[in-house]
Amino acid sequence: MKILVCCGNGLGSSFMIEMNIKKVLAELGVEATVDHCDLASASGSKADIYVGTRDIATQLTSLGGKVVSLNNMIDKQELKEKIGAALVD
């Protein structure tokens, strides 16, 4: 299971979301590889789940994986619910 977090620059918000995803996965007891990158690199990286904030997520839908769109980057509850839902399908 590979989760890729994307943002415009690939070093700020995507890394911070990656940190939160790892915490959430630990809480859910799920193992997965989590990485982060910028939008330009995302199309070259195969992942099962792509994660981004709203403005970025719209640009991830054509990549062939599930897309998790976040409203609030620091809301772990939102992240847990959405990642949890994406993992189940």
Binding site: S13, I56, N72, M73
Partner: peptide
């Protein structure tokens, strides 16, 4: 170019 994605939280 990418929209206001840097507004990361309220």
């Amino acid at each position: 170019a990418f929209g206001p994605y840097m507004v990361v939280a309220p």
